[in-house]
Amino acid sequence: MDNFSCPIPIAEYPTILLAHGGGGKLMHQLIERIFVPTFGNPTLNVRHDAAVLGVNGVRLAFTTDSFVVRPLFFPGGDIGSLAVHGTVNDLAMCGARPLYLSAGFILEEGLPMETLWRIVRSMQAAAQSAGVEIVTGDTKVVDKGKGDGVFINTSGVGVIEHSHCIAPDRVRPGDVLLVNGDLGRHGIAIMAVREGLEFESAIESDSAPVAGLVLELLSAGIDIHCLRDLTRGGLASALNEIAAAARVGITIDEKLIPVREDVQAACEMLGFDPLYVANEGRFVAFVAPSDAERALDLMRAHPLGEGASIIGAVSDEDAPLVTLTSRIGARRIVDMLSGEQLPRIC
C-alpha cells in the first residue's frame, strides 16, 4: 500500500465535513472511493443494508450501525431504542429474522449514570419487542468534551429462512414501489427539539422494528425483489442508491407519497423537502407487479403498515434517474443531495 494515494484528492475536501455523514452524495463518495475499493470483496460489493453470508448451508445476515443522534431523548424515542430498531431493520431489509445484537458504547466522562440507565432500559424494551437478545457488547470512556454524551454501535445477526434473494440487482422494470407509511416524521421530530429551531408539535419519531411486517409479507409468498429502509437522506437517497445499483429508472407520483399534514407544515417552515427527511420505521419495497395489491393489503393490516401506499414503479428508460410526477402533473428529476438539508429562508 506504499503508493496508496487518497482517492478523494485533497483539493476537494481536506477534512471530513458533517455533510459526509448526511446520507447524500458526499457520504457515498467516502463509501465508493475509500471503503469499498480498500475492503472490496464480493459480499461487501453488494452494498446492501446487511451482508448475506453462507455458513454450513445456513444463510445468515450480518450488519452494523452507529448512532450519534442529538438530543439523546426526543419525541417518540431515544438513542437506545433507535440503536436497536436501526440494526433490526437493516437485517429485515434482506428478509432475515433478527436474532442477536451486540451493543458497543462510547461514553463521555461526566455522563450522568441516570441517563445511561434510562438508555439501557430503553434498549432492552426495544430488543424484547423486536424479539432479539443483546448477547455481547463493549464499553469505552472518552475525555470530557470529546464525546458529546453517548455514542452507540449495534451489530446484528439474523437468519434467512427463505430462498429469495432480496437485493438491488433483482429489481426489474415494471416492479411496483410500496412504502409502509407516512414519511419525514423522525427527522422533523429531531428538528423540533434542536436548539435554536424549537417548535411545538405532536410529531413523534416513527422509530420502530419492521422485521415482523417484512417476514409476514415473505411468509405470504409476496415476490419481493428489493427492500431498503429510508433512514438518513430519506426516500430520495434510497431510490437513487437503488436506481444506480440496479441500473434502472424509477418514476414516483408526488400525490401518492404519504406525508402527514404537520410534518408537511414543518417542512414548509424550514424549507425542507419531505422526500429527503430521515425516517426510522419506514422502508420501500420493490414488488413484482402481480403481487402489488396483495402486498398493499397485507401491509395495511399490520400496525406498522397502516399508512402503506403504492408510490410508483420501475421503468427501463432514462436509467439511473429517479423522476417524479409533481402534484400539478409535470415531471422532474429527484436528485440525491450532497449533504444534509439546512433550514433556509429563501
Partner: peptide, 26 residues
C-alpha cells in the same frame, strides 16, 4: 440562516469553519 453555510468563499465555507472548531450555529 442555513442558506449561507455552504456558500463558497475564496477558499472555504462556513461549514468548514465549523469543522475546524468554529462555533457556527443555524
Amino acid at each position: 440562516f442555513g442558506d449561507m453555510l455552504r456558500v463558497p468563499g475564496t477558499n472555504k465555507d462556513l461549514l468548514s469553519v465549523k469543522a475546524h472548531g468554529g462555533d457556527v450555529r443555524v
